[in-house]
Design a protein around this nucleic acid. Sequence first.
DNA 1: TTGACACTTGATTGACCGTTCAACTAAGCT
DNA 2: AGCTTAGTTGAACGGTCAATCAAGTGTCAA
Lengths: 201, 201
Amino acid sequence: MAPSDTRAKIIEAAMELFWLKGYGSTSIADILSRTQLNSGSLYHFFPGKQDVLVAVLEAYRDGIGPMLLEPAWGGEPDPVERVFKLLALYRGLILQTECSYGCPIGSLALELHEADPAVRERLAQNFQAWVAAVRACFEAASDRFPPDTDFQALAEFVLTVMEGGVMQARTHRDVGYFDRNVAQLRAHIDLLTGARVPAAA
Amino acid sequence: MAPSDTRAKIIEAAMELFWLKGYGSTSIADILSRTQLNSGSLYHFFPGKQDVLVAVLEAYRDGIGPMLLEPAWGGEPDPVERVFKLLALYRGLILQTECSYGCPIGSLALELHEADPAVRERLAQNFQAWVAAVRACFEAASDRFPPDTDFQALAEFVLTVMEGGVMQARTHRDVGYFDRNVAQLRAHIDLLTGARVPAAA
DNA sequence: TTGACACTTGATTGACCGTTCAACTAAGCT
DNA sequence: AGCTTAGTTGAACGGTCAATCAAGTGTCAA
């Protein structure tokens, strides 16, 4: 094994466990048994459990582009449609998990009530990176929107719709809640753009 | 002390502690020290910790009307403005807590990933009651909306905006995130109603 | 060959967890 | 008075937790 795959293995395992069970309910022993490591190895690379969380949040942040946006967008050329392709990806995750999907960042953001500044900062960075990508989509289609449109606020709104839709779909175990939220967002954006056809007059 | 204030005291204390620290991070010992009770008393009324949670969720559900909606609405007569009065109430809570407010139901919904059916059912009931109240507001002003409006979906969308706005405001420690989300919702509803004046032509 | 260093081993620690239970108190009934 | 029962007491239990650390192993460069 290459030197210090260990660190990467820990992060990978912790990423999945934090997503599945949350931070508080994931024990160090859980991470160790999944990685086949001993506690000493983990504590050689991380001062404590919270530092594993910080590393996981940094991995999510750095993976937003290659792991989330590119698979979501595929070949979609239209920037506004890319936003809905991204939401469609989340819909797929909801279906794959039989409506128990929870956004890893959103779940951690709500779980960590009195979060350490280092943790909260990384959570905010994740949201910021996601919102920035969506905002860039809208700005690439800025000619379709009213001239005074606040694209930052609109992108934050998309994040809200995703998080709220995911939360309700899981609580009710029904993807329809997600779909109706996305439909409302679609209606809102159609009203804003006057449903101008993407590449036509 | 009246007979079995005890039960109510436990629920009251657990309500606040679950909100402040979450369910998993609140220990039975926390509840006992706050109520000045001994463990035997708690276990006389509740089979276990989860049953305290169920009772708390039922208390929230039954308190939505008198504890949340009535204070929020005050004398506001216009049904659509009542929805925004409700959102304004949440804004006040965010400010009171220095942007660390989290919706108790939303937080529990995200924390309890693999929740017992009894718990998930109560969480869903809370969302349903909240959404039903908002839907009733919109339906009371149905003449302002397009005839094919899906008021249930619109009310679910309001819940999404609240939860998403609260989540982002807390993560960034900035109420502006909540405000911008509400502003987007306001714009959406204005577009739907054509901004028809409430009690005029 | 030697020594330095990176990494691993895994038993152990002490704190805290939810829960149990036998003993006790107090009030109401007959 | 005696009996019943709701409610309380608080020590104790077995389990799990994050974290520790002294003793190792393997791998380099000098």
